[in-house]
Design a protein around this nucleic acid. Sequence first.
DNA 1: AACGTATCCGCAAACGTTACCGATACTTTT
DNA 2: AAAAGTATCGGTAACGTTTGCGGATACGTT
Lengths: 389, 389
Amino acid sequence: MISCPKCSEVGSIMKAGYVRNKQRYVCKDCNYFFTLSNPDQIAPIKNSRRHQTTIIDIARSTGVSNSTVSRALHGHADISPETRNAVLEMAAQLDYQPNQLAYNLVKSRTNTIGMIVPEFTNSFFPNIIIGAHELLTEAGYNLTIMQSNESYPIEVSNTKAMLANRIDGLLISLTQETNNYDHLKVFEKRGIPLVLFNRVCDYVSAPKVVVNDFEGSFLAVEHLILNGYERIAHLGGPLNLLVSRERLRGYRAAMEKYGKNIEENMVIQGMFSQQKARIYGKYLLDLESRPDAIFAVNDSSAIEIVLMALEKGIRIPDELGVVGFSDNPESAYIGPGLTTIRQPTHAIGKTSAQWVLQLIESEEEMILPNEKVLKTELIVRGSSKRNRS
Amino acid sequence: MISCPKCSEVGSIMKAGYVRNKQRYVCKDCNYFFTLSNPDQIAPIKNSRRHQTTIIDIARSTGVSNSTVSRALHGHADISPETRNAVLEMAAQLDYQPNQLAYNLVKSRTNTIGMIVPEFTNSFFPNIIIGAHELLTEAGYNLTIMQSNESYPIEVSNTKAMLANRIDGLLISLTQETNNYDHLKVFEKRGIPLVLFNRVCDYVSAPKVVVNDFEGSFLAVEHLILNGYERIAHLGGPLNLLVSRERLRGYRAAMEKYGKNIEENMVIQGMFSQQKARIYGKYLLDLESRPDAIFAVNDSSAIEIVLMALEKGIRIPDELGVVGFSDNPESAYIGPGLTTIRQPTHAIGKTSAQWVLQLIESEEEMILPNEKVLKTELIVRGSSKRNRS
DNA sequence: AACGTATCCGCAAACGTTACCGATACTTTT
DNA sequence: AAAAGTATCGGTAACGTTTGCGGATACGTT
């Protein structure tokens, strides 16, 4: 006979429908609804994943409490050498691996720095990663890398994922097409340190690590001028990126300083891509009055130009001087050797990482210079050393 | 006067030592020990980190329970459209970001794949990473990358960190110096899918993704022979790596097939490094009876040889044929262009990632072929196209 | 009236750790 | 010997989620 779990009444129990395929009853006395639990139900299917030994397992096997185990494992005080040893032994025996997830949850920090780069097809960003990676691992931090693939939506979703994973700090280099920065302001609001590098923007009040694009660009163009080139073209990048604007500015400044006329039809701004480089390069080389030198915004564009020029039989550097930017590995090996501006990629990564760690470890909001500008270096190779005539 | 918090007695309170620098009392009546909490103590320093809005916040603000919020956020059933919308609205308003850590803890999976590479200074491993990254992000997984820096101890500590972070699967390429594999066997024991790629070993029963080094090597040497080279040297890698052994084997097989004599003083094995390459290269080029072709174990060695030969005035390819392995980006641009064997780096990454996901998603232990061999490709450039005389 | 069905929501137990606050048992001091 | 101090250990509440299951209401159906 069924009795009410509440008033123990037996007589006034009635069926009252089904809930999840189980008979439901109601006690008319106390108006209490209930269903009967089936004790002989099949035990829930054991999770096929093997059980990972936890602190609790160690505690049980050693006969101490969880907290003691935790203290022993972390070399805390308040524990006798004997129990510590016993615990450590048992931990080794049970092949214990701490669960960082639980640790992170309770400490609400992950010891992980996130990094978002637009791409890593050429060696530029990988080298930055190496620099950051080195410093971070040494400091006991992990690094998770994501790639926005030069796409703004992916960048946004990447930042969301980083946020969800509760990284302790973020290093980010923006996309070509990013011009809304709300996804970065979230980090400010949350108090999560953020450092922009290389592809930065002015609309976020976060530290920025950049190279001296202006100066590098200036040096490159000055070098061309000093080598006797007169009519220098500039194949630039997209103007929403600061680097493109700075390199353009350096170009203009150098031209102006030496009193060279800038022919505006020889100043082109476009997206970074090999295809675009070929199109713009062809345009410049096919100009009725061809420039005698081209300063390109990056090495891959410069190399395209060199190759096209050689195909056309234009002699480099005599008939055409070419200078690139970044010093890609292949630039040293191409035909005459590409003159270029070397960026301290390693240092960019290292500096950014260092900065984000400083921000994390500084309790009070430190007042820091909000921009660090690293030096560039002119690498002179064959593509610009004209035989003075 | 101090009164017992339990029996409110005042007379029989006595000091009873210190606990963490705080006076401790005991009530002789009820034998109750206690310390006085200091209400005017400075409030515990507020964690400077701002409060992150949680599911509970949303629940409170919306007037529903946590479970309802959770269900609403995940589009579960058993929830009315109105409450769902209310919850979602409130979530947006409070700028809720889910805490992946808590999620991972309760689900005991992280949706993250770990990857350990020996280095990423040249483009080889970055390209593999790109391939894996692409596939994994598409499948909704994250990728955390670690670098062992060609050091066995670092590799071990990396695997430990991966384990602690409860990655769902691991992709690993071994160090030059790794010859103990216990740290990998832990993954087997734990049931965590593991895939080896490129630098693999035979002593772990895990899937392996490699390229056909033997065949590639054979093709390279055969190509040299078919171009009329006779006395072909081999500059090889360290023999504890399978790749080195396979490439050596391919070299020997091709030489044998075409009845060429192998002069053992022209077969050298050494570590991967630019310096070593220069030393061995100098040795080969300075030999009293110089080889007429060199097959190098990788492109960077081959390039060193090409550069040294050009310095010495040795004409390439007429006096010396050179073939490398890997198709580094700079190989296309160097002097005459370096003939080389292209490895499908992208595919290596993609295949490995695909495989690890298969292992994760297959409930029962699937029987899979435990090795996948990807094809290599001969890229013919100027350094080996001899003008037949 | 009695029973059945559907829909929606809340409770509370996990997940594995850490750390605060006590609580013992012992040693030392007065 | 009582009182005070010391050295270790345990209990337990967090951390933020998910989820199984029970409970409640509102109808619809015999």
